[in-house]
């Protein structure tokens, strides 16, 4: 048996569980209820002010969530990667520990806490839940890049007259951008399509794009649901291009 034959099971898996579903989404999105080819589903989205509004809210929430994750996650990653401030691996595990628990359960627990303390559910609680869920996905790739960064760059900058503050802004931050890019990919993309968090943490007061896809599918509007999913995939695809060298961003995860 040739070595290349070993990849057959994986190719089959990819075909059945990745390529086929994507093709099905494409096919459903471009059909009407009776199986005729049409662009109507896609056109409907652009004239559906409800869907457009939800889409705008989803983008806004996703962008806000990503920004908050960067603002909180970058300093955390920097502290974790700094051997003078953090001498133990335990703290790193503590940051990653929440990822071991199912996100749905954490969200439910968070919702319970809010109701226990009598906190009104709304945008604030939604963002809190999202940041709580996705922060580790921002910290980890940034930490990885900072941790592997050759310390001699910072030394060279100091040697050339840079104060610690300038070293950080002129060397550390630019060199850690691949980690930030990969963190953005891992936080932004899933938050656009999430629906469970908004369901539990706002009682569906705030609908996200994922919510309306789910609603359409649940009410057997397969074709429109598929069209919305297709549009979301395209948007996500475009947003990954903005994060620049994908190769670098992926490297940050290793």
């Amino acid at each position: 048996m040739k070595r290349s034959h070993w990849s057959i099971p994986y190719a089959v898996f990819l075909g059945v569980f990745v390529v086929l579903p994507l093709l099905l989404i494409l096919v459903y999105a471009l059909q009407d209820g009776s199986g005729h080819f049409t662009f109507a589903n896609i056109a409907r989205f652009f004239s559906d002010s409800d869907a457009l509004g939800t889409f705008a809210v989803s983008l806004e929430i996703a962008i806000e969530n990503t920004l908050i994750c960067i603002l909180l996650g970058y300093p955390a990653a920097w502290i974790l990667a700094n051997r003078e401030l953090n001498r133990s691996a335990v703290t790193i595990v503590l940051f990653i520990l929440p990822m071991w628990i199912n996100a749905l359960m954490r969200t439910l627990a968070t919702a319970e806490l809010f109701s226990m303390f009598g906190i009104q559910l709304g945008k604030g609680t939604l963002l809190f839940g999202m940041v709580y869920d996705y922060l580790p996905f921002m910290i980890y790739p940034i930490y990885n890049v900072l941790n592997k960064m050759d310390k001699s760059y910072a030394e060279a900058a100091q040697d050339l007259g840079a104060t610690p503050w300038k070293v950080f802004w002129k060397v550390t931050v630019p060199l850690s951008m691949p980690g930030v890019a990969s963190g953005v990919l891992m936080v932004f993309m899933p938050t656009v399509s999430t629906f469970a968090i908004s369901e539990f943490l706002t009682n569906n007061k705030i609908k996200l794009f994922g919510t309306i896809i789910q609603e359409n599918i649940n009410s057997s509007m397969w074709n429109y649901g598929a069209a919305l999913a297709l549009i979301m995939l395209v948007i996500i695809g475009i947003s990954t291009m903005f994060t620049g060298g994908r190769g670098e961003a992926e490297e940050a995860l290793i």
């Binding site: 050759d150 001699s152 760059y153 030394e155 060279a156 900058a157 060397v171 060199l175 951008m177």
Partner: peptide, 9 residues
């Protein structure tokens, strides 16, 4: 520096 430490960016 031994490995030059030129800034790659």
């Amino acid at each position: 520096f031994q490995r030059y430490a030129l800034f790659p960016h």
